[in-house]
Amino acid sequence: MPWRAGPAARATGERPDPYRVWLSEVMLQQTTVAAVKGHFARFTERWPRVEDLAAAEDAEVMAAWAGLGYYARARNLLKCARVVAEAHGGRFPDTREGLIALPGIGPYTAAAIAAIAFDRAEVVVDGNVERVMARLHDVRDPLPGAKGRLTELAARTTPEARPGDYAQAVMDLGATICTPRSPACGICPWRAPCAAREAGVAAELPAKTPKAAKPVRQGVAYLARRGDGAWLLEVREARGLLGGMLGWPGSGWAEEVPEHTPPVEADWRALPAEVRHTFTHFHLRLKLMVAEVGDAVPGRGSFVPLDRFRPADLPTLMRKAYDLARAEWP
């Protein structure tokens, strides 16, 4: 992966770049490697050093983050880059304690950066490592309650020598061999000592406490287009879901559509289809209202000229609304 320094490079003295390790770890939170690779390449090409990212405009970074989801990470990314650039001279702290004091860096991310970038013997436990430990030691207590025990077991195997390589190796083992479904036990390097494989229950672990059904929330989005092709957009409030991102003006989201008013006077009409989107804690159903507008001054947002409007800068939910509106309202 592009943020790693492989064994051959390390043998020549090359060390992982803490900036690239940090950036990759933040991007990989709740996001797949496949989704991250392209964004990582674009970020590091545009902002190759933490100082470059720290000097970037908020709107540019939020637009570049579009599609990765969990947008609070992007806001914290900027905060952290600026603290590292201004308070630490562009150098990341090399200990877990120093890293965890930075904005947006929690216990897992601090341990991962300390181990991978600085070879600190920290215990790095993500979902892949939890699964490997649960199977290796046949831990049948369900998650999330079993997290503490699985972390203790992971700590027992974390070595003093090359802890960064070890951390990445166990995460890769879980991602490629000890997978959630149909683990490839026959080619696993830990096949012999694996207690769950011996008991015939590897594919059933780790056990998980059943999740409650996600509630459904409703909302409305207004897509207004001027005769010259400009679209009416707004930057969402910094706090909350999609905070700081570009979006269509609309209502709040609740069990029933909250009271709201259109952002500009127009002959609004409802599209026959709705946007459906799932967040971590709820499903969203978004009704779309569309209108061609003249020169009226909007009460919310501002018109973005067609030559400056890029659908790729929208978060996934808002891009879904745009795609659906374009299909239903050419």
Rank of each mutant, 00 (worst) to 15 (best):
A8T: 10
R10V: 10
G13N: 04
G13D: 08
L23G: 07
Q30P: 04
A35H: 05
V36G: 03
V36Y: 02
V36R: 00
K37D: 12
G38C: 01
H39K: 15
A41D: 15
T44Q: 02
T44I: 14
E45C: 04
E45G: 15
E51W: 01
D52I: 11
A54N: 11
D58F: 15
A64Q: 14
A66V: 06
L68D: 05
L68W: 01
Y70H: 13
R73W: 06
K79G: 04
K79T: 07
C80Q: 02
A85M: 08
A85N: 07
A87G: 02
A87N: 11
G89H: 09
T95V: 05
T95C: 09
A101K: 13
A101G: 12
L102E: 04
P103E: 10
G106S: 09
A110R: 07
D119N: 15
D119L: 14
E122F: 11
V123P: 04
V125M: 02
V125W: 00
E130F: 13
M133K: 03
R135L: 12
R135I: 13
R135F: 13
D138H: 15
D138N: 15
D138V: 02
R140Y: 01
D141C: 02
P144W: 09
G148I: 07
E152K: 12
A155Y: 04
T158D: 10
E160I: 08
R162A: 15
G164W: 02
A169D: 08
M171T: 06
D172W: 07
D172M: 06
G174E: 08
P180L: 09
R181Q: 13
A184T: 03
C185M: 09
C188K: 04
W190V: 13
R191Y: 07
R191A: 14
E204V: 05
P206I: 05
A207I: 00
K211S: 14
V216S: 10
R217M: 10
R217H: 10
A221Q: 06
A221H: 00
Y222T: 03
L223D: 03
A224P: 05
R225T: 03
R225H: 03
R226I: 07
R226F: 07
G227V: 05
D228P: 06
G229Y: 11
W231C: 09
W231A: 08
W231S: 04
V235Q: 12
R236I: 04
G240Q: 11
G240Y: 08
G243N: 06
G243H: 10
M245D: 00
M245T: 15
S251K: 01
A254E: 15
A254Q: 12
V257H: 03
H260A: 14
E265Q: 13
A266H: 08
A266D: 09
D267E: 14
L271T: 11
P272N: 13
A273I: 07
H277P: 00
F279I: 13
T280Y: 06
F282Y: 15
L284P: 08
L284I: 12
L286W: 00
K287Y: 09
K287P: 00
V290P: 00
G294K: 04
R300H: 06
R300D: 02
F303I: 12
P305D: 14
R308A: 14
R308D: 12
R308H: 12
P315Q: 11
M318S: 11
R319T: 05
K320T: 03
A321G: 07
L324K: 00
A325G: 06
W329R: 09
P330S: 15
